[in-house]
């Protein structure tokens, strides 16, 4: 098994904490997958833990299933060039949001809406996509990065990301 310390290097850390589009998935006990939108990612100082933010209204079932199955998959994509990574997570736990998290989410929501407007999404549409994070209760799932994959569309998508030297 890979040492999780090496999975998230500085470049990937900066990417994950930037204004990227986030999809989150898990599965229930019958392996029925469920997908939802994430509203920001934070990486712990030692790069071993990631926290993804979700809204209660959209992701109640997903959070329940993730805690039960202890499996999480997170896709992070730059909406202006589709550079994407998928992180497979284990040791999933729900954590309380702190002040730093709230500031990060606020900054993220502004940034991602600006990014989406660059690719043809109107301000009103972008606001609707992210409205639940502005108005609803936010929850946080923390997990350990278990594997990282390149996910940029094309013939190389799905290849495991090599560990940094």
């Amino acid at each position: 098994m890979s040492n999780p310390n090496y999975l998230i290097d500085q470049g990937l850390l900066e990417f994950l904490e930037s204004d990227i589009a986030i999809l989150v998935a898990t599965r229930d006990s019958s392996n029925q997958p469920i997908i939802s939108r994430g509203f920001g990612i934070r990486v712990s100082d030692d790069c071993t833990q990631l926290t993804v933010f979700l809204t209660d209204i959209q992701s109640r079932q997903l959070i329940h299933d993730a805690l039960q199955s202890d499996h999480l998959a997170v896709n992070a994509a730059n909406v202006t060039n589709y550079e994407s990574y998928q992180i497979k997570g284990r040791h999933v736990q729900q954590v309380e949001l702190n002040r730093k998290d709230e500031r990060h989410i606020s900054k993220y929501l502004r940034g991602i809406q600006e990014q989406m407007m660059l690719v043809g999404v109107s301000p009103e549409q972008a606001a609707t996509i992210f409205q639940s994070a502005e108005s609803q209760k936010l929850l946080a799932l923390q997990f350990t990065a278990h594997e990282v994959f390149h996910q940029t569309p094309g013939p190389g998508a799905g290849k495991s990301r090599p560990q940094p030297e």
Partner: peptide, 22 residues
Amino acid sequence: GVLPSGIATCSADGIPNVTYLS
């Protein structure tokens, strides 16, 4: 086909996968 869609699947051994669709 205006905005990208996402899909989640799961392997037989229970590992979820999530990606964008063309």
